[in-house]
Design a protein around this nucleic acid. Structure first.
Lengths: 144, 144
DNA sequence: GACTGATAGTTACTTTTGTAACTAACAAGG
DNA sequence: CCTTGTTAGTTACAAAAGTAACTATCAGTC
């Protein structure tokens, strides 16, 4: 009953990308979610501040490619957890400089470690050669 | 100022997977969204019915790996657009058989065509060799 | 220094998703 | 039949994300 040239979703690249991304995201998301009750955007904001130091919400928005409302909400949430603090930007009264507080730094280190481990594990299970190829192809796809 | 062994999100495989998936999803989603105002789950339900013929919500749930509440909502939405119809299942009073109506079949064919074109285009831009490798690796990742 | 347009960030509103609770129908055993 | 437990699907509620409108500040111009 299956027609010859029928379209197969199960081999459709965007679908496979989603499946693979979801599987991997779930695996890593459970770490920042279960350990710290954080959302993906919150982890991303925390990461940028931890990795590159103090910056404004607009800086994060540009660097992470996230919409400003997402940043705004993530910042408020991280602030409430005492992970970051705001200090006025003397150059521009509209914005504030955001920086991690010690507990935030701590969480950043912990999650960075977990991410490194996660990546190493994936690389191991995939094999170094395939892992590298995959990264290269994903970059290529994203750039299309 | 950049420390040596610092974790780099931009080379983190789950992150790259998400980026690539998002880029590709957005590209294809705009088709069913803009053309027919459909959501991803709706397209998936429509696909299963169009590709494999009438089945129950539970069948779709199992085949597509989608939660039953998602199916329920998608089915109602597709029904309101007159894309599908329900008929009682004489074997089991709790469930109904779902099948596409002519307009639904029409949309299914149109979207299948669009998907085929999309895949061909991607294959062309990526090169056949890389496209195949990518699919292989994505399957491998999903299976981990 | 008032007017115009742009920018940083927040708030309000809407849509979508996730989760849990619920109803109805089934199935098996007493 | 009448309990007990399971399954199909819907509904209700809560969390999250998207979009638009808003406030405040800035920068340049007249």
């Amino acid at each position: 009953m299956t027609r010859e040239n029928e379209f197969e979703l199960s081999t459709f690249t965007p679908y496979l990308l989603n499946q693979a991304a979801e599987a991997q995201s779930l695996a890593f998301a459970s770490i920042y979610r279960d350990r710290y009750g954080m959302l993906r955007t919150e982890w991303r904001v925390l990461y940028h501040l931890g990795r590159y130091g103090p910056m404004t919400a607009a800086d994060i928005s540009a660097a992470a490619g996230l919409h400003k409302t997402k940043i705004s909400r993530a910042v408020r949430s991280l602030e409430q957890r005492r992970y970051l603090e705001r200090r006025p930007n003397s150059e521009d009264g509209r914005s504030e400089y955001l920086s991690l507080r010690p507990p935030g730094e701590e969480v950043f280190r912990s999650l960075s470690d977990a991410a490194r481990k996660h990546e190493a594990e994936l690389e191991h299970r995939l094999g170094l050669r395939d892992a590298r190829t995959l990264r290269r192809l994903l970059l290529k796809v994203r750039a299309l």
